[in-house]
Amino acid sequence: MSRLQVVSGKGGTGKTTVAAALALALATAGKRTLLVEVEGRQGIAQLFETEALPYEERKIAVAPGGGEVHALAIDPELALLDYLQMFYKLGGAGRALKKLGAIDFATTIAPGLRDVLLTGKACEAVRRKDRSGRFVYDYVVMDAPPTGRITRFLNVNDEVAGLAKIGPIHNQAQAVMRVLKSAETAVHLVTLLEEMPVQETVDGIAELRAARLPVGRVIVNMVRPQSLDAADLELVRTVPRASLARSLSAAGLGGARRGGHAERLVEPLLGQAEEYAERYALEQEQRSVLGELGLPLHELPLLAEGMDLAGLYELATELRKQGVS
């Protein structure tokens, strides 16, 4: 299985949550995963309920079964300094460059350069080995930019090509692209069962494929419980209101006669069922759109109590159950 797992998705779909759950799910017994953040939002720290992550790999969780999740928030400026240090042994001169604004300049003038640094750091972690020649991380999971920007972000080669035609940045971009376009990488997209995110997912996949980037799974997040199925909804439409009122009354909810407590519940309850039916139909439609993509499709439930650390483990367990690890 691909060792670099990139997670993208439309804003608001919970891609950071899914990336974190995936990192936990992949950290099965004895395995180590690295969860990487590239947008400086400290979303990982918030999810794992820890203090802000520095630009440094550190263990943030132990997965059920004993695996470990490490995390890293990549800062492009520090990554560039790292990089200069590695290739040019700059020492204190690096700080002088920073003071002059050269680092800020270099990382912001061209988003391509910035992205090469970010993806380059992730690729380095993928390839890193310890003294015994074993990979330091079994998997690297990247909480990547949203669907709208993911292809540009990963397709660093094209982005940099026009700017740096030769030189180390050019070579670095080439090396990064070799990893990103290989089977070592899989790009997963997170979506909701709603029209706009699904459309964006479909478009995003087409773009990724056109750029020959390896598309992995589609993960539908925050799937609401299926309280009533199609048969139930059909019944809801056919049952007379008076019968419903009697049934509510029998359940201990007041009088079934006109104006009684149970009778007055019928209208609002049916109204809610109607809304549910409309949403159900829309969701089924979106499911079939996603089904046509021909990719592994996973669904994660909406957590009734909202997202917290316990919920994250719950989602990780769900992902394992669905065979992502």
């Binding site: 139930d232 049952v239 049934s247 359940a251 049916l270």
Partner: peptide, 11 residues
């Protein structure tokens, strides 16, 4: 009918 009603109540 009870089944439908129970469904509505859970919803």
């Amino acid at each position: 009918v009870d089944q439908v009603t129970a469904g509505l109540l859970r919803l």
